[in-house]
Design a protein around this nucleic acid. Sequence first.
DNA 1: CTGAAAGCGCTTACAG
DNA 2: CTGAAAGCGCTTACAG
Lengths: 349, 349
Amino acid sequence: MAIYMKIVTLKDIAEQLNISVTTVSKALKDYPDVSKKTKLQVRELAKTLNYKPNAFAVNLRTRESKTIGLIIPVIVHHFFSNVIKGIISQAEKKGYLVIILQSDESYELEKKQVELLLSQRVDGVIISLANGTAKYDHLNEIIAQDKPLVMFDKIAKIVKCSKIIIDDRKAAYTATKHLIDIGCKRIAHFRGALLPQNSIDRFLGYKKALLDNNLPYDPSLVYICECGDMSFEEGKKNAKQLLKDHDDVDGIFINTDLVAIGAMTEFQQMGVKIPEDISIVGFSNWFMSSVISPGLTTINQPGFEMGKAAFKQLFKEIKARKKGKSLEPKTIVLETDLITRASTKNTIS
Amino acid sequence: MAIYMKIVTLKDIAEQLNISVTTVSKALKDYPDVSKKTKLQVRELAKTLNYKPNAFAVNLRTRESKTIGLIIPVIVHHFFSNVIKGIISQAEKKGYLVIILQSDESYELEKKQVELLLSQRVDGVIISLANGTAKYDHLNEIIAQDKPLVMFDKIAKIVKCSKIIIDDRKAAYTATKHLIDIGCKRIAHFRGALLPQNSIDRFLGYKKALLDNNLPYDPSLVYICECGDMSFEEGKKNAKQLLKDHDDVDGIFINTDLVAIGAMTEFQQMGVKIPEDISIVGFSNWFMSSVISPGLTTINQPGFEMGKAAFKQLFKEIKARKKGKSLEPKTIVLETDLITRASTKNTIS
DNA sequence: CTGAAAGCGCTTACAG
DNA sequence: CTGAAAGCGCTTACAG
């Protein structure tokens, strides 16, 4: 019973007005060499018939789809979903659509997804690497096809493309220094996965803060996670292990809030008091961290801004390519800050 | 210095093998009327040259893009990001890509985004309506173009398309009944926005539970939110107002966990004890609700499953259309359950 | 088993 | 100011 609309093409408009398809096309695109009268007629009819250019044909002709691809490790994740939001909002402003894929921290999946996006001929790719990614052929293929590629958060330094990051080493240094400043002497670190550059840098920042402040660096205080993406559980597990291994730890710098919250949950169940017995600093500033109790001191990582910056950079590179230019890869470093809450002792009070 | 790869077409392969483009195309698609020998040759060369069909051309010919559109009110949202994950994971299995747009609870934006998706000629659309959506022309246009449309969570009953929902009325009834069972006598309700069907149904479930259990229904106990998407703040605001208006309330059924968490935060700051003074039940079972203290009793809403079901239904309809059939719209109701935590008094202990 | 041809719906260089 | 023509890279009905 529904009234199905016929899909209108340039040809339909041309026939109804008894002019050529060429002229219709030009009129709609406001070419200067079409008479005002014709333009008006064409536009009016196009509106009446609800004409929409067939994107498939336009894509084929113009060799661009106004669509970009985004690959992220996890979607249900405060930081990453903020990045998605940033990318989408910025893309929409410039008339671009975003195809989103989730690599689930798997290199194999990530590789397949890059292939998929390339075969869909997206105009560019934004990616945050899976923890498992240690080979970069799939990324180099994007570059070899002369397609813009922007990495953010979990990057590979060796890949020649633009990157949007924070200064992970500095942020981790600040986080650890805060623990030192409030008097912690034995500071552990839950670093998460081994591979990603940001986890390496955060570890280095932690270590440097210790050494700069005359605290010994003890490798047995650093907990690595071989697991996949079970952050909350990982925090609980590490916390339990830590209590067995070391009874003298008085502070922990934990890579990622979700892990920190897992650890706090475990500690509270075991009767360990935060911050009286152990002070905790997280990383990322998930919304959750502000509503749990005690509130979690953490490093604020600007997800939304990273997303915006990533798309802006990608867009610049897309535009440059259209003009036949090629931009030098650029690395943009966004600011972070320490947000102190009740999970670390307040020296003032 | 980078080695740019030439993009290979069927024509390139055909020329190198001295056969026709037709045969190459058929060989790659494993048509039965091509000799084994030719097929082997073609495939091998295609592989060597890293041939990838030009999706733009394929789309134009086949009139489908293997891409669907998804419009959701908010991305940074535990429930919705789970839905996204469900849709993407299912779509990937079937070789479909997903373009995601965020309506920000705005009808105007949502309308524009539908236009965008239609002009991109996606193969189908999945949507959860903005709170502000009260007109459905844009949705009917999708249907008029004979494109599959699936709604989930925030639906419009009047639109003739498939829907994936939960039994909101029943779930709200269960939530309210739980408050009654543990002895609450004056139960308030934060219903959120006025328009969306699910908020209406949840309100009706709340009301019915009261009446079925001989508790008077008092409209002044129902708090509506005219604001946009500021859920946490909304909870705080309502909680504050509630304390001013009514000092006898002993239970609240709050639409959406995030609002509930805002309310709990406010109550704790005001010295109101949960659950001793007021018991609280949320809706949606955000991860956060399990780690705050006290834990929030809530209704578990299966976001991931909803996403999967939504794509599955859309896929069925896409397939049916290809065969020239048209499926009757189907409404799928997923199960929910009550998860009791410390925010409601435990009658057993 | 192979291939010439038409066509999907646009855009644009070119001619008039 | 207008339009015929070529072409983007495929797919497929049809002929041989």
